[in-house]
Design a binder for these strands. Structure first.
Lengths: 343, 343
DNA sequence: TTGTATGCGTTATCAT
DNA sequence: ATGATAACGCATACAA
């Protein structure tokens, strides 16, 4: 009828807007908006009309417009140091399962164990005005720390426990885990215990620290039996490091690996070399990846509740987003020693 | 000076806006906008002023406002069937590495091998007006298909090759891969060849199909030697299926597994049972995961170029986003048989 | 090279 | 219960 009213500049996407839905339904745009959002005060009759119109036009909201108008996004940013580690995938999945049903969008960032990359991701994701932040550990740049504070955005820290206080965190004591590893190996009568770690993120270091402390207490600590490398953790690397260690320190009779993939590599390499596990050397892993219990021999490991951590952290986020403060800001999810055949 | 001009309704986030940056820099908002975006026609002197002002105020753009005003987001949606499979992680990483430097945001969706979930993700992500879509394979709901078409949004399909034509796709022939597997095993003199697959997505099925065809041509096909299950692929499952197959069909002398984790599980279980690989039974995997070459015996596998696929698909997306059509719409990245010790 | 006017699609506010 | 008006923060179009 009035084609000139439909003049759209070339910038528009051509997708139907709320206005068009409203017109088709014979209501005002705001009523259409309310109807579609399920806001209470709309006559059921109108709701139906609007829904029909929306369906007919194949209408989908424009998130950008919605976010701008409401000054609120529905996104929660999750930053993890790696995706090649199944560990964090499980955590991410759990977070999704909690947040998605509540209407939140999960934005995933992988910073490859780089503090600078994490800072960049953070800066970038801030432009989306996320509602909340789920971060891994406490080791980050000063800038990153300031950004988080300055934006005053709800934040939950995962995987480790806050040594200070006041931060919402869900995890377990990496230090204790290292101690537990040492105690187990010592209880097996081992005397020459080694720690092998890769990646060298703060949590790996912390586990090594706990391990060392326990050895020192037992009078068994030997600095030559610590093998650390910044290279990314992998099965292949585990085999390499195992060989290197056994050749340079043949007296070693127990090894705690900072990650299961390293331990798995060691098991395979041991088999190739004819080194008996656990007779000659006990092998203990960390994280208890799904495949570990199927190794030959079955790998003893410290099982970490990464799925539960994700779930719980997401739930904390939910209460923070609801404007409440969490009752228990630091929650220790613990870990579990799984003794199998390799120790 | 004029505090009433700063009256903000309670909806605002309180974050500095382009207006405030412009005021501080003593220029108009649009000049500030241009300066920050690096648009050519701004005096370098002003650019500096604006940047200083922005830094001082800790300004970050509001992505929602930008997207709304420009009627364009900078996001590209990538949908994968799984994250627990290292395979897709590597593809995602490659995509990131191509797209991020060009200023694109990568939105990751995991649909857990569920067509319905993929459709939901698609519907949801459409509200973000993404610039492009990177999808996995061709097997999706009719609704999903229509959404993609209706929105007329650049789309690149990964992992498989379009049996029809006209779609931009980067992958390799899953069918050929299955055939190659069979031919290799046959060339080793094996007579009783089995196919074991899990997950049963279209590509797994396609590989089985290719395998079967090759066996039929060689007159070696035996339907009892196909073991398929919809359960998710894992090392543990591989061991189970291996045992089951060897017990019910002891004559089997070669097995092609649809996934390396299954094959790895088989290798471990074989060792436990004292079944000699490859003497009694040859084991061939698929995908060549990083750990496969470290197995005992080292796993023969078909190596798939998932990283290259991601990179290439992202590059195609880039040219599509630039408004050009790609010279080579269907690109076959091939695959490579890696013969090691297990066959 | 810079600025003015205007609009993006939606929702908050306040009336009715 | 519904609607008119304005605003969210930024970028496009066009003018100067």
């Amino acid at each position: 009828m009035t084609p000139h009213k439909n003049d759209k500049s070339s910038r528009t996407t051509g997708r139907p807007t709320l206005n068009e839905v409203a017109r088709l339904a014979g209501v005002s745009p705001i009523t259409a908006s309310r109807a579609l959002r399920g806001v209470s005060s709309v006559a059921t009759e109108l709701v139906e009309k609007v829904q029909k119109a929306a369906q007919e036009l194949n209408y989908v909201v424009n998130s950008a417009a919605r976010a701008l108008a409401s000054a609120q996004s529905q996104s929660v940013v999750v930053l993890v140091p790696s995706l090649s580690n199944l560990l964090f995938i499980e955590t991410l999945e759990a977070i999704h399962q909690v947040l998605r049903p509540k209407g939140f969008e999960v934005l995933i960032g992988n910073y490859h164990y780089s503090r600078d990359e994490e800072e960049n991701l953070l800066r970038n994701y801030m432009t989306y005005q996320p509602r909340g932040l789920l971060l891994t550990g406490f080791d980050r740049t000063e800038s990153a720390r300031r950004m988080i504070e300055a934006n005053n955005i709800p934040c939950v820290y995962m995987m480790d426990l806050d040594p200070g206080a006041g931060l919402n965190c869900v995890g377990f004591s990496q230090l204790n885990a290292g101690e537990t590893a040492a105690q187990h190996l010592i209880s097996r009568g081992r005397k020459h215990l080694a720690y092998v770690g890769a990646q060298l993120d703060q949590r790996t270091l912390l586990r090594g620290e706990g391990f060392r402390r326990a050895l020192q207490e037992a009078g068994l600590y030997n600095p030559d039996l610590e093998l650390l490398t910044p290279r990314p953790s992998s099965v292949g690397l585990g085999g390499e490091l195992f060989l290197q260690l056994m050749q340079s320190q043949p007296q070693v009779d127990a090894i705690f690996f900072g990650n299961d993939d390293l331990a798995q590599g060691a098991l395979l390499e041991a088999m190739r070399c004819g080194i008996k596990v656990p007779e000659q050397v006990a092998v203990l892993g960390f994280n208890d990846l799904p495949s570990s219990e199927h190794m030959v021999p079955r790998l003893s490991s410290i099982s970490t509740p990464r799925e539960a951590i994700g779930r719980r952290a997401a739930e904390q986020m939910l209460t923070l987003l609801a404007g409440n403060s969490v009752a228990e800001p630091v929650v220790d999810m613990g870990f579990e020693l799984r003794v199998r055949e390799s120790t």
